[in-house]
Design a protein around this nucleic acid. Sequence first.
DNA 1: GTGAGTGCAAAATGTTTGCACTGGG
DNA 2: CCCAGTGCAAACATTTTGCACTCAC
Lengths: 142, 142
Amino acid sequence: MIIEQKLVAALRGHKMKITPQRRFIFQALERGMYRHPTAEDIFRDVRQTLPDISLTTVYNTLRELVGMGLLRQVDLGEGMTRFDPNTDLHHHLLCMRCGRLEDIYIRFPCIALPADQTQGFTVTNHQVIFEGICPDCQIQPA
Amino acid sequence: MIIEQKLVAALRGHKMKITPQRRFIFQALERGMYRHPTAEDIFRDVRQTLPDISLTTVYNTLRELVGMGLLRQVDLGEGMTRFDPNTDLHHHLLCMRCGRLEDIYIRFPCIALPADQTQGFTVTNHQVIFEGICPDCQIQPA
DNA sequence: GTGAGTGCAAAATGTTTGCACTGGG
DNA sequence: CCCAGTGCAAACATTTTGCACTCAC
């Protein structure tokens, strides 16, 4: 319930309404936490308990959470956006064949942009995506 | 002409046909080399000299080049894919406000996944995306 | 001459929008 | 009671597909 409580508190802090839809979306995020769900994944999950929820509401809520910095958006060129409720600094390991995505918890202290290389940008964040082939796909014929 | 020649040679190597459409796409890539163009960008560029080219052909050609490893695909969650004709190992610096994308030519020797952290994956590649705000967007009101 | 490549239109996919209705505060 | 939030349908944007035609080899 950690995620749900955190998100509900954040909504309160932003004076936003705590609707059943949002609550169930938070629970789905909690359940799918290490699965990097898409909007569609969340939709399907919430639908099981709230059959009339609309995909629009899911998109709206996810967008708001991203805007508040409570959800990380992960884009991998699969044609859809995945969401990561784990906002701790971590990196990703992507299977190029099946799309499986795992978390990597290593710090790379050397990843920092020297001031003379920022081209005037204010850098706020960085992410590393490791690309490869997962164990399952290595076994299967290409 | 470096890019065009390289790509034409690659096509020959793969016994693929060198059509005018492909040639112009290569030239457009060459011209937009440091601009990380989208398929649409290439389409608009080539259209100026080859008004009847179809977007389908552009997509086909770009997909083939990516498949042959001659073009890098860059995904940033903007709803479209950008292509980077520069296949040298380099990283990216993205403006979160306007989408401007710059190249970063630094090596981060520490970015390597220890064998006990690969979760069985065969890692072939990695990319770093630095996120921030570009100089122009810093000046303008949010 | 032949099949890879092309162009067009249509479809598929993922996401956003307009708008009337509803219910949390 | 009021407006943020919701649901629906339609719109939108990007990319893919089916298929007949064409042209590089």
